Simulated scan of single mutants.
Amino acid sequence: MKTSDELTQKIAQELKAWQKSQENQPSGYAYEKSFTELWQKLGKEVFQASIGDNKYAKNSKKK
């Protein structure tokens, strides 16, 4: 499981790389699309870190 410091660093690195890739972006559509993709990716990583390394099975029986 990643610590919150590791997640914070990962998010900062991804955001910095995304910002650099968006310099001179002429299309608002492409900018918004890449922004959405970035946050979906980061959201998935944060969610996965919150549930741990075990596979999340939404249909598994609760104990």
Rank of each mutant, 00 (worst) to 15 (best):
Q48V: 14
S34A: 05
G43S: 03
K63R: 11
N54G: 04
V46S: 00
Q9I: 10
T8H: 13
E14V: 05
D5P: 02
K20P: 00
Q25I: 11
Y31N: 02
S27W: 10
F35H: 15
E14P: 00
K33T: 10
L7D: 04
L38M: 15
D53F: 02
Y56P: 01
M1K: 07
G43I: 03
E32M: 11
K10H: 10
K20S: 10
K16G: 06
D53Q: 11
S34P: 05
T36V: 11
K63T: 09
D5K: 06
S27T: 05
F35W: 12
Q13H: 06
A49I: 01
K10P: 00
A12F: 03
S21M: 11
Q9H: 12
Q48R: 14
E6P: 09
N54V: 01
S60I: 13
Q19I: 07
A30E: 08
K16V: 04
L15A: 05
L42H: 05
E45K: 01
Q25D: 04
L38R: 10
M1I: 09
Y31H: 02
K55N: 03
F47N: 06
D5Y: 02
I51V: 14
N54F: 00
G43R: 05
N54Q: 11
Q48W: 00
A17W: 14
K33I: 06
K20D: 14
T8G: 04
K63P: 13
E6D: 12
F35V: 00
Q48E: 15
K41M: 12
F35K: 14
D5Q: 03
E6M: 13
A57Y: 15
I11A: 15
Q22F: 04
S21R: 11
L7G: 04
E6A: 15
K58H: 12
L38H: 05
K20V: 13
Y29Q: 07
Q13V: 06
